[in-house]
Design a protein around this nucleic acid. Structure first.
Lengths: 140, 140
DNA sequence: CTCCCTGCAAACATTTTGCATATCA
DNA sequence: TGATATGCAAAATGTTTGCAGGGAG
């Protein structure tokens, strides 16, 4: 799960400081149950840390992505949003309406990846299996 | 395969005219062996139809997407590119280096989708299975 | 001949960069 | 204290809109 202290440790080890803006972005993402774009993170972040600057949000998101603490979400129309990394390991359901993300275990996927890569000679480093649709509550 | 006449028919049936700019974008995408963004399509398109305007490229891409003749590619950093629809039905390999796309048959995926959706109560309308890595020639 | 489509320019939205100041370790 | 990181403003980038003229059917 999203543990701030654990994430802080990852940052420190990589030689980065744990500053207020960075902590703020981490907290905002940790509290989200779906994905958020830079503008939404800024808005929420300013409730915690009013001095937060827009630029720091962008820079922090880049940093978190680089460190593997956050990930970009590739929804059909929205490719500029982020979620904390532990919320999406690469295979998840996205609700088209409310944006909620539900991660699911990827049983069978590794198998498929292996056979496909052997067949085509690709060396695969990452995967993205995203199912788009409506979550139970948005179906009503 | 990408057959211009066939695509033209889809457009006509939907009540759209087959104009020079639209034909140009279709030809450019048909000739691509990977994905291209609006700027690249404009550049290539102008070799065929020098009068092509930037705006028409955007509008045509929207239209083609709507009609199911093109699709957005969700590469890690590049979410603003398109490829012709028959090149990617939702499950493909993307080379991180050269951008080439290789579609593969999705045996087993439907099965997986069904079980996952039953379990979580989602109604799924679309999927995206993308494997990122290096194609055989870029591995060297 | 009519309406849809185009291209230009300008408006908009979003992200990045330059730089002086503030801050974490 | 010193190197990093911040925040502002401005620039760069990417996309959309308004509108007069052009072309497909």
């Amino acid at each position: 799960m999203a543990d701030l202290e654990e994430q802080a440790e990852v940052m420190r080890r990589a030689g980065y400081r744990l500053t207020e803006p960075r902590k703020t972005v981490l907290r905002v993402l940790a509290a989200a149950h779906g994905f958020m774009d830079a503008a939404a993170i800024l808005e929420s972040g300013r409730l915690i840390h009013p001095h937060l600057g827009r630029v720091s949000v962008y820079r922090t998101l880049d940093l978190l992505t680089e460190l593997g603490l956050a990930r970009k979400v590739h929804a059909a129309d929205d490719c500029h949003s982020y979620a904390r990394a532990d919320l999406l390991e690469g295979h998840y359901l996205v609700c088209e309406r409310c944006g909620q993300i539900t991660e699911f275990p990827c049983e069978g996927l590794d198998e498929m990846i292996k056979s496909v890569t052997q067949r085509y000679g690709f060396s695969v480093h990452g995967h993205l299996l995203q199912l788009e649709g409506l979550c139970p509550s948005c179906q009503r």
